[in-house]
Design a protein around this nucleic acid. Structure first.
Lengths: 344, 344
DNA sequence: GAAATTTCCGTAAACGATTGCAGTCAATGA
DNA sequence: TCATTGACTGCAATCGTTTACGGAAATTTC
């Protein structure tokens, strides 16, 4: 082990020595404190600009207990919703001087626990998280909330009450819109492919679907509802089972565009005509859903809006030290819209 | 301004007091130093596990001058290549105990400069960057290299020599493969849509294209080569000009799948049959290129491989304090492959 | 049995920025 | 002329962890 290198060439004390001032004054200039003479302020500013001095975030963070850094945990970057949300959050926070540490849990609970600890160790000022498909116990976030680090969940959020801000798309309405759309087109035999019901988004989307069905007095066939991870392979297996023997469904509603795309490709392969024989609705407005032929009707979640809401909420919580101010414990619901395309 | 809260409940001194030991001993246990009695070690470990103590990264970073954090700058998360590379890097580094701060420059040089400074302020242990389309001056990374923070570039990299590790796909070969493929199919009138030539990847891809053309003694028509940002709108404009009056090209090579997709959609709209009337080749193997009808022939860059190479290179540079070891200054080239699809 | 090791642990000084407190100096008022 | 005020600046402690150094105890060696 080596000793840390001698006083770095660009510390506040170096500047102080060169300018024949005390470190305290330099610090005050850097932090825009009042009661610094304009002359010295300018002198310092000029010198800082010349030497390219940059504040050591660790030292100041240690002292002030703030890092100007926000942690973000998502299941997978590559999911379209998240790439959009992340982009929005990152630029939004950057505009306010905050950095973003982005981590991916890869849908593993162990990894998610690990990341929560690591982010706490880094003493980030806040944490934003979209959870694993299977996270139903959220106690690994306790270490953050207990230490007054605000936590915000979005998309995949706790179902039970949890002391954190929650932002989500209107999944219930999304499910409802999609199902209503199919029903209005005359579909009577609608199959539903859902993700695992451990996850709030799939619960809500399915509930919306059911609502629309019962509203129109169409029974939901148990054997036409599937719950599994929404991968392309699983979707193909489901399609195989669905079309093994009649009666065949006249529409398929998928809780996910990846699934909807796989469904469509399977249909094209086996000669089922979309939308004449089978109508398909997806969820998320993945860019691929617009490009495939026929293009797929889907639910737009407006990830940019979700990101914006998160930014304003997280900034609120970062600004006020006084936790006195009332921060709505109610989930914030971001509206969704149906985008009609050729698959219906 | 408030004073920082009194000694945090979970500091090394708290543990020391509770266990009637000195902070030094606790620290030694935590860092696996030798010369700690097994009994005390176990006692400490047990207590740490029980209380859930987590090392304050800022304090230890301040002392040791290491943060176990790597910074990453990309132009846009949403670009397929980058989402894949980032994913690989993040999980690779996490396995070795490193965090990743991911930033996006949004193809703005100002933002990129800003980010380089911020990452230096955070005293990250290394920086990985894919530059802006327009970055040709790389001096804003000097603050990092001058302070012995290793810098690695990938994809969009400096053309001039720069004291940093460089990892890139084999763009020259990619361009060459794509062009050769078209030529072998009998195409004689090949148009080329390139990104701006400020960027190494477009220079190299075009050079590969030219090489193949001259090798087969096919002249490159100046008015059939276009340089502009590779957006869908620009591609449509170019297509409009290309097909305004004969002679028409019999193939289009796009330096980018976004462009290839836009080209294909335009062709479908105006009734040009692909591949009979016009063959199309793209670059990157964007997931959309496989899904569109007809699917588009493209160049696979193996982003996962690029990510893996970056991880091993960055780890090399993080491990050895002695900069004596020879680290190849030569760019590392990751092979590419042509994927043939229906558009040719 | 004394000396020389070795093993273990505590002391204290860093790392660099921040900030309450106190001191200096000039300007002002009585 | 002296006290008072206020603007400006410096002193020094602090944040939590690491680590060189030295001391004490236990062990080995001759």
């Amino acid at each position: 082990m080596k000793t840390p290198k001698p006083t770095s060439k660009n510390s506040i004390q170096e500047l102080a020595k060169a300018l024949k001032l005390s470190p305290a004054t330099i610090s005050r200039v850097l932090n825009n404190h009042p009661h610094v003479h304009t002359t010295t302020r300018n002198r310092v500013m000029a010198f800082v600009a010349k030497t390219g001095y940059t504040r050591n975030v660790m030292a100041s963070g240690l002292r002030t207990n703030r890092t100007n850094t926000v942690g973000l945990i998502v299941p997978k970057f590559s999911m379209f919703l998240h790439t959009e949300v992340i982009t929005t959050i990152q630029s939004g926070l950057h505009a306010h001087g905050y950095n973003l540490i982005i981590c991916q849990s890869n849908d593993s609970i162990e990894m998610e626990k690990d990341l929560a600890r690591t982010l706490y160790a880094s003493r980030v000022d806040a944490v934003i998280a979209a959870c694993t498909l299977f996270t139903n116990d959220f106690s690994h976030f306790d270490i953050l909330t207990e230490n007054n680090i605000p936590v915000l969940f979005y998309d995949r959020v706790p179902v039970q009450p949890y002391p954190a801000c929650i932002v989500k798309g209107d999944d219930f309405r999304g499910g409802f819109l999609a199902a209503s759309h199919l029903i209005q087109l005359g579909c009577k035999r609608i199959a539903y492919i859902s993700g695992p019901l451990t996850c709030n988004i799939y619960i809500d989307r399915f509930a919306g679907f059911e609502k629309a069905m019962t509203q129109h007095k169409i029974p939901v066939r148990k054997d036409w509802v599937f719950y599994h991870e929404l991968t392309a392979e699983n979707a193909r297996k489901t399609m195989y089972r669905l079309f093994a023997k009649p009666p065949f469904p006249d529409a398929i509603m998928a809780a996910n565009d990846v699934t909807a795309i796989a469904v469509l490709e399977y249909a094209k392969e086996v000669g089922i005509i979309v939308p004449e024989d089978l109508r398909i609705v997806g969820y998320s407005n993945d860019p691929r859903s617009a490009i495939i032929t026929p293009s797929i009707t889907t639910i737009e979640q407006f990830p940019v809006n979700i990101g914006k809401v998160i930014v304003t909420e997280v900034l609120k919580r970062l600004k006020n030290d006084s936790d006195s101010e009332v921060l709505s414990p109610e989930p914030i619901i971001v509206p969704v819209e149906l985008i009609r395309r050729m698959s219906t």
